[in-house]
Simulated assay, not measured.
Amino acid sequence: MLLWINGPFGGGKTQTAHEIQRRLAGSVVCDPELVGFGLRRMLPPELRGDFQDLRSWRQGVVEVLDLALTKQDGVVIAPMTVTDPRCFEETVGRLRELGHDVRHFALLADRETVRKRLRERGFGRFLQYVAGKDAPLRRESWALERLDECLERLREPEFAEHLWTDGTTVTRTADRIAVLAGLTLAPNRDGLVRGRLRRAWTSARHIRLD
């Protein structure tokens, strides 16, 4: 089974994916974004755009996930924002055509909720403290510019199952996905402090500098 966790940039996809992975024995996280960043680094800076526009990204993601799903006994988890219907069909749709059990979930939230999460992830909280709460988020500007369009597109029926995450926790979102997918997660034994430290570490490990 493949759990494709979709949602806006800053919507909690990566945190949710790793929460499921740590509580579901035998599962693995296969991040399609890594394929995209590899392709971007091959190009000169002036040619770097949205890697999802590259056919090689779409084909590469399908090939890698097909291999993982064929050879890996456990559940595969792919946290990745995809809002273009054609791109969605050439990745999620293609994997289904290959016979894989793909469960797709779109994590949604109000604009201000996502905007706050974008400010706080990675180095955002530190930058706010130094430069002020309204300081421009240069590293997140690309995500903010596309936020409204992203939220609007992901509300479309083709991107169901929709899960609204305002006012809920990563742990509860992971639990909801597991129930909908018919999976059983191990109990969450993290306390408040340990849970925050774990999520901070997950965020730090996924900071993108390019």
Rank of each mutant, 00 (worst) to 15 (best):
T16H: 05
K116F: 09
D190W: 14
M42N: 13
E63A: 14
R48N: 04
H100S: 04
L137G: 09
V64I: 15
R146E: 08
R196V: 11
V35I: 13
A135R: 11
L34Y: 07
D66P: 00
P44F: 07
P8W: 00
R208D: 13
S56M: 12
D190V: 12
A178P: 07
D134T: 15
A135L: 09
G26K: 12
P8Q: 01
L108T: 00
G49Y: 00
L154N: 02
R41I: 03
I77A: 08
H100E: 06
D31E: 12
L95T: 02
L108H: 00
R205Y: 00
T113K: 06
R96Y: 03
V64F: 07
L98H: 12
R146I: 02
T171C: 12
E112Y: 09
L151Y: 01
A143L: 03
L108K: 01
V35D: 06
E112W: 04
C87N: 10
A160L: 04
T171Y: 15
L127F: 10
P157D: 11
E149V: 08
R125C: 07
T91N: 05
D190H: 15
M80Q: 07
L192D: 11
A178M: 13
R198C: 07
Q52I: 01
E149L: 05
L192K: 11
S203N: 12
L209G: 06
S203P: 08
P85F: 02
A68C: 12
W142D: 14
D110Y: 04
P187C: 15
D101R: 14
P187E: 13
G10T: 07
E149Y: 07
A204W: 13
T168C: 13
R111E: 11
D175G: 15
D166F: 05
G38V: 05
R117T: 07
D148A: 09
R176S: 08
T70C: 03
R189Q: 15
R176P: 10
L47T: 07
G36E: 00
E158W: 05
Y129L: 13
R139P: 11
P187M: 13
G12C: 08
E33M: 01
G99H: 09
W201K: 14
L34A: 12
L183N: 09
H18Y: 15
R139C: 09
C150T: 10
W164A: 10
V114C: 04
D66E: 09
A204V: 10
P157E: 09
I20N: 05
T70V: 03
L34F: 08
P157K: 06
E46D: 14
L147A: 05
T70P: 02
E161I: 01
A131P: 10
S203R: 10
H18A: 05
L69N: 07
V75E: 03
G195N: 15
C87Y: 03
V179S: 09
F88P: 00
L180N: 06
R117G: 09
L54R: 08
V102H: 01
K13F: 00
V28K: 11
R40I: 06
E149W: 02
D31V: 00
R55T: 12
L163M: 09
L183H: 06
H206T: 10
R153C: 03
F126R: 14
